[in-house]
Write a protein that binds this DNA or RNA. Sequence first.
DNA 1: GGCAAGTGCTACAAAATACGTAGCAAAAAT
DNA 2: ATTTTTGCTACGTATTTTGTAGCACTTGCC
Lengths: 104, 104
Amino acid sequence: MAKGIQTIRETQTSASLAQALDHFGRRWALRVIWELRSEALNFRALRAACAGISPAVMQARLHQLRDLGLIEQIPGLGYRLTASGEQLFRIMAPLAEWAESHLK
Amino acid sequence: MAKGIQTIRETQTSASLAQALDHFGRRWALRVIWELRSEALNFRALRAACAGISPAVMQARLHQLRDLGLIEQIPGLGYRLTASGEQLFRIMAPLAEWAESHLK
DNA sequence: GGCAAGTGCTACAAAATACGTAGCAAAAAT
DNA sequence: ATTTTTGCTACGTATTTTGTAGCACTTGCC
């Protein structure tokens, strides 16, 4: 067992964070949160906003995000962020600026 | 064309952000950034940190993240975040706290 | 030198995930 | 009552990820 540049990490990633990163590391997951940032959208409007997503995947993401308590479905209104979801959005908001300045 | 709850979004998501969210919406992408937060790690150490990732996917992510200018490979040291990558990490850092308090 | 261990990386079949299109049943609007 | 819009499902195809094996190359060591 060589004592090389790196051995075992002293600070390992927590299970909660790993879980979060795994959930968000699915296509459209972050995008859906993003599209709900300012207003509630119904299924089809949300699908239009995420141009290219298939209905099956949208349905899957909505379920997962609902299970995570990030979004909620209001009958007659559509889907919208919960308090927890809005908090997450506020966290990822600076990402927009970052993307603008680094991905041009 | 009914003027329902929502018509067309007035503020649409920019291409850059869509691109960023698409890149990060791949498995292990955010996790790899996260694991490199404090120190450079070589291929195998990085793979050990991301328990469960396959070498092929790790290789693919490293390529993509390198193309995005987020990480760089230093011969004899391994992979580490670039200035741009560290900036991104600082942005997503609050995510750790969020995950701890919301995903228990 | 020679040899063992560690390195980054590739190959490839199987499983999981996403895409694309069509369309249904229920609610709402006309 | 008929049309429109709604959320959602089905299903075959394409893409992505997994899991395992191993290759070629460098490094440290006797």
